[in-house]
Design a protein around this nucleic acid. Structure first.
Lengths: 284, 284
DNA sequence: GAAGGCGTTCCGCAGGGCGGAACGCGGCCC
DNA sequence: GGGCCGCGTTCCGCCCTGCGGAACGCCTTC
């Protein structure tokens, strides 16, 4: 509760927010698209248990259709029907724990994240890229009441976060996409100009370090470093603190060292390598 | 494997029966059933990246169909196509992190699990029930080389584990189901007799404690206690160790206390209450 | 008693998912 | 080299299956 309220409780991006949105002229299998839209409805906005009617409102799907879908998903364990409504089912958690991108990176990174935390006692993050968004895999935080907008399993646009820019800098295709979409101002400091963002990415590419100076959320600054395998960032680490202690810079070496350590651990373990998903959506 | 042999299950079509199981005469939406079977193929057996051909073998689905399904799931982010094959996608992890059964229980339990670990330095588990299986939500383990068969996000039959029996004892419907299915012997000590299991559950109901004495795995014993809300177990905690140090019993009070502590924390936080999913499959 | 919101069921229409067949490719073995 | 096998991918016409408007029974609210 202490967390996300003032961060704007972001309803991700303006393109997808109106109650009807997507799911219509899409490629792929219609039923699947709808089913996943349904599931996504649980990850957006507040609350975790919803009535059929509310899901109908959120997704814009007709009630009989939803009824059928929910019943099917319930049997499959992806959704659970409780007296209070529907919620995401345990089997989703099971499946999620078997996602290799998460599993292996996290495992390799955890000791280094711990070290970073010990050294700084500030919030430490591990994230990966998905499309032009960042997904947080892990967070270690202490008792300091920093209101980080992040959450494990949460998603934020890459262009306005430390880890995000580090990831973009070493993922050309994703960077292209990000540079081709509108950059909404989340704070007065958000980079909203494509030219500026491009330069920032170049700088990051040169230094191997990425800074977020209240670009996503007022009161939050951080340093991040990419975890590079074959010159591509498969993940990124960061330390976050509040700007009174503006000297995030002094953490830069530690963050960079942690990223390198993780890289080495991974290089030693086979199996994580083919890190780049093509992620079908190159159509957009 | 243990299940369907006696049912005859003849009338269904050929092609999908043998190398795989289910997915044929099922209720629900066919495409969804297939898609989820496809995803499940990634959580069974070794390896996390599979070729289309291999998935075809595992699921028994025709290749063109799989091709179409995988492409659709790729766009949705539930699956990722890499040069080496397909793997589960990051969005599954995202969804999994939003599962309330997991999210809230884990959050409430974590400090108590830590305490248990500090006190014992043996492996600590947190699990919930799904059907007649147990799903592990969290595990804290030290450096002792105990080969626990568990894994976070893993699944085991309830009747042969400490947490499982604790959960069954306080979930009548699930217990009924478990008592109606064949109990395979996983070790010489596994309870395979329904009568014996029923008595064991009664004992657990009286004492509030459940023991696993190498019933699931040789070399593994544990004590477990249910986390009770309104006389139903919404989860269970356990401490596991190897039988040379047979005195798991001395951990019993600590485990029980932890369970009570978690219960109290949850009772104070609203929102976790409606814990019983009906989980569609009451058909069986 | 009317009005609105909810979850649920029914059923006839047609659009979408199906999968056998066929193709191009690369590795392997004579 | 030629033949073979297994792989991923594309095509296309048949037919099955998912679709959703309409209608119902049950609540609470005014």
């Amino acid at each position: 509760m202490s967390v996300d309220d003032q961060a704007g409780a972001d309803a991700v991006e303006p393109g997808t927010d109106n109650p009807v949105r997507k799911a219509v002229g899409r490629p792929g299998i219609e039923v699947l698209n709808r089913a996943v839209d349904l599931l996504n409805a649980f990850t957006e906005g507040p609350g975790s248990t919803h009535s059929l009617a509310e899901i109908a409102r959120r997704t814009g799907l007709p009630k009989p259709t939803l009824h059928r879908l929910l019943a099917a998903l319930d049997v499959l364990g992806l959704v659970e029907k409780t007296p209070a409504g529907y919620q995401l089912g345990i089997r989703l958690f099971e499946l999620g724990e078997h996602v290799p991108r998460k599993q292996k990176l996290r495992e390799a990174a955890l000791p280094f994240l711990q070290d970073l935390f010990e050294a700084s006692h500030d919030t430490v993050h591990l994230a990966v890229l998905d499309g032009t968004d960042v997904v947080y895999l892990e967070r270690i935080r202490g008792h300091r009441p920093i209101n980080v907008a992040s959450r494990v399993g949460g998603r934020l646009p890459a262009y306005c976060t430390g880890v995000g820019k580090a990831l973009l800098a070493f993922n050309p295709e994703a960077a292209m996409k990000a540079l081709a979409m509108p950059l909404a101002a989340r704070t007065p400091y958000t980079i909203t100009n494509h030219q500026v963002l491009a330069e920032e990415l170049t700088r990051i590419r040169q230094t191997g370090l990425s800074y977020d100076r209240e670009e996503n959320s007022i009161g939050i600054v951080c340093v991040a470093a990419p975890i590079l395998i074959d010159d591509r960032a498969i993940g990124a680490v960061s330390i976050t603190c509040s700007p009174p202690r503006t000297d995030v810079e002094r953490y830069a070496p530690a963050v960079k060292a942690a990223a390198l350590g993780i890289r080495r651990t991974i290089a030693r373990t086979p199996g994580l390598r083919p890190s780049d998903s093509t992620r079908g959506d190159n159509r957009s």
